[in-house]
């Protein structure tokens, strides 16, 4: 099974039309990866689908970097009892 980090990068790449290899943990979704506000909403939606979790919109949309998204999603998965590969 792919790790949370790999899955976050795959989803991010698909939504933002990038190559997953180019995405680094320190990348900021908007400043570095060019995510527009509408794409931020789509990213949250697709993360929820990928991990079968439900995230608080305010908390999810305040995450700025890929690395922070990985940590945030891992913690939500833990809270909601979803098993993932760390």
């Amino acid at each position: 099974m792919a790790t949370v980090e790999e899955r976050v990068k795959t989803v991010t790449a698909q939504v933002l039309k990038l190559s997953a290899d180019e995405i680094k943990n320190e990348d900021n979704f908007t400043a570095d990866l060019g995510a527009e506000s509408v794409q931020s909403i789509e990213l949250v939606a697709m993360f929820e689908e990928e991990f079968e979790i439900e995230m608080d919109e305010d908390a999810a949309l305040s995450v700025e970097t890929v690395g922070n998204a990985v940590e945030f999603i891992a913690s939500v998965c833990k809270e909601q009892g979803v098993e993932v590969e760390e």
Partner: peptide, 9 residues
């Protein structure tokens, strides 16, 4: 239809 930026916004 999306959840968008949520109800607090």
């Amino acid at each position: 239809v999306t959840k968008g930026f949520g109800r607090r916004k």
